[in-house]
Design a protein around this nucleic acid. Structure first.
Lengths: 186, 186
DNA sequence: CGGAAACTTATATTGAATAAATAGTTTTTT
DNA sequence: AAAAAACTATTTATTCAATATAAGTTTCCG
């Protein structure tokens, strides 16, 4: 992949996290000091650019996740912890609270993201099921685990309560995973 | 409190859960087969009605909570579990996803609700702090616990994923609390 | 070639005008 | 005495034209 393409997609991520969906092709060209012509040489339209950016953004996560799963030095429960913490990088880079804005204007892109997230959860689900079968963790409905984790992440991202107490997003996430794996009880 | 007042406030809760904020004084009178005059004899205006309904709705929860806290047969960690499960009755009756609609049109009522929830959390927080001091549970930032629980509840209420897997809201809630207290690890 | 800017057309936003709905009151009916 | 219906003064929703914005194209220039 050529570097122009990459830098354009990086700019999309930067602008998305900065302004949500309210950024223009002109914003991209201004940020990178390139002409719109250059953007349109790489991507036929805005749709295609967003679609490619989604794939580009998720590729890193997928790879990281695959490494964790392949790492035989980790036991199953450690893998689950790490894969779950790995997952939120999506939420982080893409800033989940604003993704719903895509649904109407870029439905194809939105569905691509939804699909990617489902796939990512698929990995985690398989690990959870395996751990349940082996008696390493309790048998609990997986949707409960999934929704609890998703809900917590969205809350961490959307509230100002964490900032007030000087607890970082990263620390909160690790605390949350530890609570879910090991419980509050000592 | 007279029974007319009560039935009007019950109707408000019914209609709110049915239609969100989009119900009228006429809806109330139709539902109860009473005249609007009767409503306005009990409550000066819609604001006052809503305000009273909020207090009425939270009163039961507060009492239930107080009973749990006063129950000396329960140990501290059990109390925490029970108080947390007690809390969502608010979310249940009031259907939290729609409360934000109050913010603009009935700010006084909205702030009352926000205050009630904060107070409820205050109790839980005190129990959590006490349990941490006594070494019964891990020392974890309380906002992390709070946001995880709030996020999970909101997810349970807003998603259709639970319905698909035949896991009830009630079961999910108990599973979630068990996970947070005791962890997934066996 | 590729950046900068001008240009065109489709889409979004705004705001005034109008229509509809509703809180609160009054009158009529049972 | 209270329900039902009618009424009015506000609020709220809707419409539609104007205005503005942004995607995508073309032109010019270094």
């Amino acid at each position: 992949m050529n570097s122009t393409r990459k830098s354009i997609m990086d700019a999309v991520v930067v602008l998305f996290n900065e302004k949500g969906m309210k950024f223009t092709m002109d914003d991209i060209s201004k940020l990178l000091h390139i002409s719109k012509k250059t953007i349109y040489k790489e991507f036929n339209d805005k749709d295609e650019l967003f679609y490619a950016t989604v794939d580009y953004g998720f590729a890193a996560i997928k790879q990281k996740e695959a490494e964790i799963i392949a790492d035989d030095s980790l036991d199953l429960v450690d893998k689950i912890s790490k894969v779950i913490v790995c997952l939120p990088d999506n939420y982080r880079n893409i800033d989940f609270r604003q993704v719903y804005q895509l649904r109407d204007k870029f439905p194809v892109v939105y569905n691509r993201i939804a699909g990617k997230i489902e796939t990512d959860w698929g990995e985690t689900e398989r690990l959870l099921e395996e751990a349940m079968d082996k008696g390493l963790i309790k048998k609990v409905p997986i949707p409960v685990i999934k929704l609890t984790i998703e809900g917590a992440i969205e809350k961490f991202l959307s509230t100002k309560e964490l900032a007030k107490t000087h607890v970082t997003y990263e620390e909160s996430l690790n605390s949350m995973i530890d609570i879910i794996i090991n419980g509050l009880r000592v």
